[in-house]
Design a protein around this nucleic acid. Structure first.
Length: 895
DNA sequence: CGTGTGTGGTAG
DNA sequence: ATCGCTACCACACACG
């Protein structure tokens, strides 16, 4: 049963409300159209009759990021008689789905549809006819087994219960049915889409919403999943109802109850309770299945309405829950007759009425002067009600009576701590304690938060949605492996999944954390929950990836190394998580050529962990073509290292005997470790020489073959270098040891280094070399560096950079530093590391020194320096730095 | 003492 | 059967 009144509020969007809106909804309008409008954009006026109308019977849904971009694809399709839509409404019959990749959710959804790559559109247009979709099927990409699903009935293949055999499919099935996964995904998506919106708001309306006049509303659907799932079973609405994955009608199920209605709650049933236990409490409990699509529809109705009434800011909390700043909305209603509280009441009631009309589900609304109060009010408002907490008397009373556990950021652990150590159960209990006492009990930061809570202070600013800092994927259900091979299969699929997630948001990362859940010694082999993890020990290990990447194979190589290093029996594994951090946007990073010295810095810990593996990490990975591009002395160093490696290895163990490496897997592993570009080069090179790609020659063979295949003059040079006196090499090594690679040298040295290396060597290749080689290379260009420094750099710039890090600069220093940075990199674009340092410096200037003007003027100066610069990357950087200043100064600065 | 890493907590 | 996710913060501790 679809929400009945969507069309009404869609019309209202163009009506009176839109004009009063203090927000510009242009961007958001696009998002909303994309996400949830029921309108179909049919570009009939764009039909070009000169073109063959090959798409005339096609209705194409363009999903997500594509190349060419969706707009261009739509143009191609519509100019040739087709219809393209940017969203699905469940009613329009779509003939084709155009996508580069699909989330598991969508994969599930589109399983029976023609899902094709964007290239199909392009190629068909070029061919003047519809090409067979077979070659463009996206399902091929996702996994071998998916092809079957296209040709065979869906139900024929039972989805696997466990993760071991058909990993791709398992992951797909798992996420498709996981409510927590959906919640997380929705939240991320919502935050992402509201982020740009908020930026626009902040720059335009920066100071209009004063903190002391702020009115926050916390809006939340009542038992969201249960309410929405009930829409399709209205006859059950008066019964105790829950939403669960379990299909059985009886028995002691260990399935989670995702959501239950308030009738069920009267029996003592709670969200998260296992179905078996709930049935004991209420044998008549009715089970509903998830209806993720309907949840999205209801959510969209909420968010759409919120935007149409013209709120000052939106912070998505969840798919069914949102914080909004309704200050302007309320103050606009205040007059002689209507008090502020009255206005808030009106707004709340209107919200509730509208949402019920459009979704047939009830919401509750809590209103207060800050997020804390809004949340407390919401709690009192539930279900199906609203509470306005605006006068200080009622705030004091409600806050004081609040049980600690119900406050934001106070969960079971913290509330237990407070109850045991301080005998405090409500906020008023806590008021008796000093800041220091609270901090001693729960930590400095948390203590401060609690101290402020007691005094109705909450500095949560709902206008700020920070950039995403990590992308991760976890599975701790159904993980049961019988062999290391199964574990590896799973890890390959899993890294594909995280790669997909990175690509989906157009980001790459350079740091990997692997988490393993391993059955606790005292836990039974089989957990109480069917295929659950049970009690586990959690082990996390992290490693740099040495470059920004979203490549599944590359990520796998490091992830697998970490898994093997933990050395847990496959049978004991109960959960796996992958997390990627140190992210950059791909469009930003692409043109940066990965000039990131920070990635080179192998931290002490990593050095230790990888000690001994340094030599076997790299040597066989250098491809002929790559090697021959390197400066001669660099090649020599590689050769030397290989030689040393052989000697050392011969004295100890063969690689096969290493406890970490699995014999049959070593070679593919080595290949998989390589960056995409190099891997391709190697495969090509080996193929040219008629060898199999999947089994690389032994290390020594590669060595010899590569060497033999080198052009004569290069070989000569290598031999010359190779024969140089040991002493000279030692000297260089000493120099290398003396030169630290750190942020300070980044700026001044990279430019020089690049010149020294010439255009032939890319950063990716350089970065894969052992660190000592990199250091040596830098040292070799020491002379050049000196010269360059004298000519090309402003005097004192290095010092300035050092000061920047140590924060001992005046405004002139800072501006000079920025000038130097721009001068050095105007054409090639900013390097991320330096930007990061500057960002931190700016933040510290404002946060710690309270020195806003230097920060603001610095960024303004940067803008002036780059006036007329064609490089978009610089502008992106400026935008980001401006954003930092805006965030830190509390939105009062307008650039 | 600043920095990085692993662990734990919280939210929905 | 059953789908126990995930981003982010804060903290303790180790490091040199």
């Amino acid at each position: 049963m679809a929400p009945p009144k969507i069309s009404d509020w869609t019309k209202a969007k163009n009506g009176t409300n839109a004009n009063k809106s203090p927000l510009k909804f242009d961007d958001f309008g696009i998002y909303m159209r994309h996400k949830q409008s029921k309108l179909v954009e049919i570009c009939k006026d764009k039909v070009d009759n000169a073109l063959p109308q090959i798409f005339k019977d096609c209705i194409c849904y363009i999903n997500g990021y594509t190349s060419p971009d969706p707009r261009e694809l739509a143009e191609i399709i519509s100019s040739r008689g087709g219809v393209s839509i940017q969203f699905l409404n469940g009613k329009t019959a779509v003939t084709h789905i155009i996508a580069t990749q699909l989330t598991p959710r969508k994969m599930e959804e589109f399983r029976k549809c023609k899902v094709v790559k964007p290239q199909w559109v392009v190629d068909s247009a070029a061919a003047g006819k519809l090409l067979p979709i077979f070659d463009y099927s996206i399902i091929d990409l996702a996994g071998n087994n998916m092809t079957l699903k296209l040709t065979k009935p869906v139900q024929m293949k039972q989805p696997p219960h466990k993760a071991g055999q058909d990993s791709d499919n398992f992951i797909l099935q798992f996420y498709a049915k996981s409510r927590l996964h959906h919640l997380s995904t929705w939240k991320s998506e919502l935050k992402h889409h509201f982020q740009s919106h908020v930026t626009e708001y902040m720059t335009q309306k920066a100071s209009s919403s004063q903190k002391d006049r702020q009115i926050i509303a916390h809006i939340d659907f009542d038992c969201f999943f249960a309410s929405v799932s009930l829409l399709k079973f209205p006859h059950l609405a008066q019964k105790p109802v829950c939403v669960t994955n379990s299909t059985s009608t009886t028995g002691n199920s260990s399935a989670d109850i995702a959501s239950c209605n308030y009738i069920a709650r009267e029996y003592g049933i709670t969200n998260g309770m296992w179905l078996g236990k709930a049935r004991q409490l209420c044998p008549d409990l009715q089970c509903l299945s998830y209806d993720f699509e309907a949840y999205e529809t209801a959510s969209k109705a909420l968010y759409d309405y919120i935007l149409n009434i013209g709120v000052d800011a939106v912070l998505p909390v969840s798919v069914d829950e949102v914080l909004v700043d309704i200050s302007s909305l309320c103050y606009a209603r205040v007059n002689g007759e209507v008090s502020l509280a009255d206005a808030a009441h009106q707004v709340a009631q209107e919200m509730r009425q509208h949402i019920f009309e459009s979704t047939r589900c009830t919401i509750s609304v809590g209103i207060g002067p800050n997020v804390l109060c809004a949340k407390v009010a919401l709690r009192r408002a539930k279900p199906d009600g609203y509470v306005v907490l605006l006068d200080s008397a009622s705030i004091d009373q409600e806050l004081g009576a609040c049980s600690l556990k119900s406050l934001p950021r106070i969960g079971p652990s913290l509330s237990a701590k407070l109850s045991q150590n301080l005998n405090a159960h409500t906020l008023s209990d806590l008021r008796a304690y000093t800041l220091e006492q609270l901090q001693k009990c729960v930590g400095s930061r948390t203590g401060e938060v609690l101290f402020k809570y007691c005094r109705n202070e909450d500095d949560t600013d709902i206008r700020i949605i920070p950039d995403r800092k990590s992308v991760s994927a976890d599975i701790s259900w159904g993980i049961r492996f019988n062999s290391l091979q199964e574990t590896e299969n799973f890890m390959r699929s899993f890294t594909k999944e995280i790669s997909r997630r990175l690509k989906e948001i157009n980001m790459k990362g350079s740091f990997l954390t692997v988490k393993l859940l391993i059955r606790a010694k005292d836990a039974p082999i089989e957990s109480a929950k069917h295929l659950g993890s049970g009690k586990c020990d959690s082990i996390t290990r992290s490693t740099p990836l040495y470059m920004y990447t979203d490549e599944p194979d590359y990520i796998f190589s490091y992830a697998w190394k970490e898994v093997l290093a933990v050395n847990a029996p496959p049978e004991e594994l109960r959960g796996i998580g992958l997390q990627i951090t140190k992210l950059v946007h791909q469009d930003y990073e692409d043109k940066q050529q990965r000039l990131n010295f920070a990635l080179l810095e192998e931290k002490g810990k990593n050095n230790k962990r990888k000690s001994g593996s340094d030599d076997c990490d790299i040597p066989s990975q250098i491809d002929l073509a790559v090697l021959s591009q390197l400066p001669p002395s660099l090649q020599e160093e590689i050769r030397k290292r290989i030689r040393l490696g052989k000697v050392v290895d011969a004295g100890h163990k063969e690689i096969e005997d290493s406890p970490i490496q699995v014999p049959s897997q070593i070679d593919p592993l080595v290949v998989a470790q390589l960056p995409h570009e190099i891997r391709k080069a190697i495969e090509k090179d080996i193929a040219t020489r008629g060898e199999k790609c999947d089994v690389l020659p032994r290390l020594s063979q590669v060595d010899q073959e590569v060497f033999d295949a080198l052009p004569e003059h290069i070989r000569q040079e290598i031999m010359n270098e190779y024969d140089r006196e040991e002493k000279e090499v030692e000297n260089e090594k000493e120099m290398a040891a003396d030169t630290e690679i750190n942020d300070e040298v980044t700026l001044s040295q990279w430019t020089i280094l690049k010149e020294g290396l010439g255009e032939n060597i890319s950063w990716e290749i350089f970065i894969t070399l052992p660190k000592s080689v990199q250091v040596q290379t830098i040292c070799e260009h020491h002379e050049l560096k000196k010269r360059h420094k004298a000519v090309g750099q402003k005097p004192g710039m290095r010092d300035t950079f050092a000061k920047l890090k140590g924060m001992r600069m005046n405004e002139d220093d800072f501006d000079n530093f920025l000038s130097g940075w721009v001068e050095a990199r105007k054409d090639i674009g900013p390097d991320y590391e330096t930007e990061k340092v500057i960002g931190k410096y700016i933040s510290d200037l404002i946060d710690i020194e309270g020195n806003r003007s230097t920060a603001i003027n610095g960024v303004k100066w940067l803008d002036i320096l780059l006036k007329g610069c064609g490089n978009q990357l610089w502008h992106t950087t400026i935008k980001r730095l401006q954003r930092t200043v805006i965030d830190k100064t509390g939105c009062e600065v307008i650039f």
